[in-house]
Amino acid sequence: MATAPQNSALPLFYKDLIPLNSQQHANWKTRSTDKATWLVGVNSVPLTVEEFPQAQRNFPIIFTSGENPVPLVLMGMNEGVNVFVDEDGTVNTPIYVPAYVRRYPFMLARLRPDAEELSLCVDPTSDLIGEIEEGEALFSGAEPSETTTNMLKFCENFEMAGSKTGNFMAELKKHDLLMDGELNIDIGNGQPFNYRGFQMVDENKLREVRGDILRQWNQNGMLPLIYAHLFSLDLVRDIFGRQMAQGKMPQPMANA
């Protein structure tokens, strides 16, 4: 159904990454756009726990399989399908756009594996950045422009939210609350669509968690986030319905 960001070389969306500096990129600008072309055909996007309350209104929230699961929103039920983004990148429905999407083509990254500091980098292959005619300058002389400073702050906040997300996932694993998920959707023709390859919170085990732990989770805000995930799964049928209406369904019985 969903895959984690490509970990082998570069994260999801990014085709290249270079660190910004005022010498090489003195004349570079960045522009805004109403076309999220990098989202075309992408059916799942990483999400931070801070975004669960907003995201659960539009998308199912699931967790990747494997030892180090991460939260994802489903924007389509099958690989290569995004029911919210048209082929030209137009977002066809008012939705919450995850921070992972909004930071592109910027991101913080380590220039060397052993480096402690993160540097603001960009994907130079994006048409949203470079020596372009219109846009906001990235540098004012040798200093970062206000635009660059604001994006740096945005990326720093994203990294902090990522740390909180890691703690949230560690707590779920500590209490063995994750289970392999399976979704079966029957459209009445006797050939159901089956979706596997993801994880979800086991509601039976959640009901067995000790009261003192539940109180702690309620006080620190973790419990509402768990329920945001669980409630969001009801939207699977909505995504499935949109995919059917758009004529983007695979053959029945296909495992996504």
Rank of each mutant, 00 (worst) to 15 (best):
S126Y: 05
Y100R: 01
D16G: 01
I18T: 15
W38I: 05
T64Y: 08
L111E: 15
V42L: 05
P94M: 09
T48W: 03
A36D: 11
V101A: 12
V91F: 00
I129D: 05
K29L: 07
L47A: 05
I95C: 00
G41P: 09
D114Q: 15
W28M: 13
K29E: 01
V70K: 11
A115P: 02
P69T: 02
E133L: 14
M77K: 01
N21I: 02
Y100C: 05
P19V: 05
Y104N: 05
R102Q: 15
F106Q: 00
Q24I: 01
E134Y: 07
D123W: 12
D114S: 13
F63Y: 15
N78G: 02
Q56K: 13
C121W: 12
A115H: 06
W28C: 07
R102E: 14
P94S: 10
I95M: 07
V101S: 02
V85R: 11
V85K: 08
R110T: 09
D86F: 03
L20E: 00
S126I: 09
V91L: 00
L120N: 12
D34G: 14
L20G: 00
S119V: 14
P71R: 05
S22C: 10
P94Q: 11
I18P: 06
E133Y: 04
D127K: 10
D88T: 10
H25F: 04
D16L: 08
P98V: 11
V85P: 10
